[in-house]
Amino acid sequence: MIGDLLINVGAVSLLAIFAFWILRTRYLVGVVVVSGAFSLTAAALFVVLDAVDVAFTEAAVGAGIATVLGLATLTFVPHFEKPHRFKGAALGISWFPALLAVATGLLLTLAVSDLPRFGSADAPIHNHVAPHYINESPNEIGIPNIVTAILASYRGYDTLGEVIVIFTAALAVLVLLVGRTRSRRDKQRKGRRQ
């Protein structure tokens, strides 16, 4: 119990420290690397919450691939963010956005008090389709991992949509970054003529 508490408090404060560090620094390589660390810490938190499948995805996608893609992108942009000033900034703080952020934070904190207690059995989320999945999936699907049963079978249509999103993203990057653009094609033609 006390161990769980320590892990939770430690991981959440680490997340806060990483988030502030990312906000304050102008060194973009550092931002990418610390974002990876942020994802890994979040993955650890998901493990504590017994959401191993989510933790696995977060560690692989958030901490792994996203970091590598970020670093790959940084090979063709400058490594430092330009210093910028917002209008109406005083004492190094832009007051209007800061006020807006604090107000939104307060509202969200107020809203949290209306949520059902964490893990409570009569929360709406545990009384909709979840009991059906837990009770019936051994008979209907017959595989031990209920998460896979939900993702691939009960919610197969959503997962198809997700795959198509990834497919579309890959195609979009393909169109934008790979292959010939008009200027490159013209350059090649010029080269051939000479």
């Binding site: 893609l69 790959a72 090979t75 063709f76 795959v163 990834i166 890959a170």
Partner: peptide
């Protein structure tokens, strides 16, 4: 699909790197 798209994304970004890092 996921493996191919991740490889594709990486190739697309890294292939354009001006520094050829």
């Amino acid at each position: 699909s996921v493996a191919a798209s991740m490889v594709m994304l990486f190739f697309a970004f890294a292939g354009r790197a001006t520094h050829n890092r």
